[in-house]
């Protein structure tokens, strides 16, 4: 089984090809705003390096966020079109899950933190399902970290530090580092963005378990919802008289 994975949720654009043996090829870049310019050549390059044509693929995997809107739309649109145009299923994963998958297991609790900009981050507490993604300020996250440390200490007596990974953790390192005792430890800058090869490996497992969907059903997870109607006071000028 051959999977092409697309990662554009945060600061990195990545494409990887993988099969049951692991990653076959990957291309990554940190292109700033140029996600749309970078992604498709990276897909072509990764396929060329792996000597696999798109027609030989069995599934497409994509990171659906949370993260930055512009990149998410580029990546999700490409994944839907590739899968639709090739008649393939799509495996979706959240950026926070991919970050967790990239960390070796057994080292302790991992909390992935993605930067949402404008003073907000998204995170996932340990042993929590992906549906419980939290979006809030770094101060709110710091308070949850302190609470977690208290609970763990009360339950087990001795606890190791939690590991914080992702660009949101690095950006707010000072605040989060002082949030709890023992102080959290931080992943390196190579774990700032969800690694696309981790996404590809996750996706192989998901395909094996039958966890995939039709491309038409794939949507980004934005993490910001604002359903309110705009309460216009001045957009209309005169009272209707005729």
């Amino acid at each position: 089984m051959r999977i092409l994975a697309i990662e554009t949720a945060t600061i990195e654009v990545g494409v990887a090809l993988a099969d049951e043996t692991g990653p076959l090829a990957s291309v990554t870049a940190r292109p700033g705003r140029r996600q749309a310019e970078t992604l498709h050549p990276a897909i072509a390059d990764a396929c060329r390096i792996a000597r696999i044509t798109p027609a030989e693929l069995d599934a497409i995997a994509v990171d659906i966020g949370p993260g930055l809107f512009t990149g998410l739309r580029v990546g999700v649109a490409a994944a839907k079109a590739l899968a639709g145009g090739l008649g393939l299923p799509v495996v979706t994963a959240m950026s926070l899950e991919v970050l967790i998958a990239a960390c070796p297991s057994g080292l302790g609790e991992v909390i992935p933190v993605v930067d949402m900009r404008r003073g907000e981050v998204a995170w996932l507490m340990p042993r929590s399902p992906a549906s419980t993604v939290r979006v809030g300020t770094p101060a709110e996250l710091a308070a949850e970290l302190a609470e977690l440390a208290r609970e763990s200490a009360a339950a087990a007596g001795n606890v190791g530090p939690v590991l914080l990974v992702g660009d949101g953790a690095l950006r707010h390192r000072e605040l989060l580092g002082a949030s709890s005792a023992p102080a959290p430890v931080f992943g390196g800058i190579e774990l700032a963005a969800p690694p696309v090869s981790s996404l590809a490996v996750l996706a192989i497992a998901a395909m094996t378990d039958g966890r995939f969907c039709d491309p038409a059903a794939v949507c980004p997870f934005y993490g910001r919802e604002a359903d309110a109607r705009i309460n216009w006071s001045s957009r209309q000028g005169r009272e209707t008289v005729s």
């Binding site: 044509t53 798109p54 079109a81 145009g85």
Partner: peptide, 20 residues
């Protein structure tokens, strides 16, 4: 609008890749 255009551009380029 950039956010709107990018969806069409990304879709079209991906279809072009898929179909060669």
């Amino acid at each position: 609008l950039i956010g709107a255009l990018l969806v069409g551009v990304s879709t079209a380029k991906a279809l072009a890749l898929a179909w060669d």
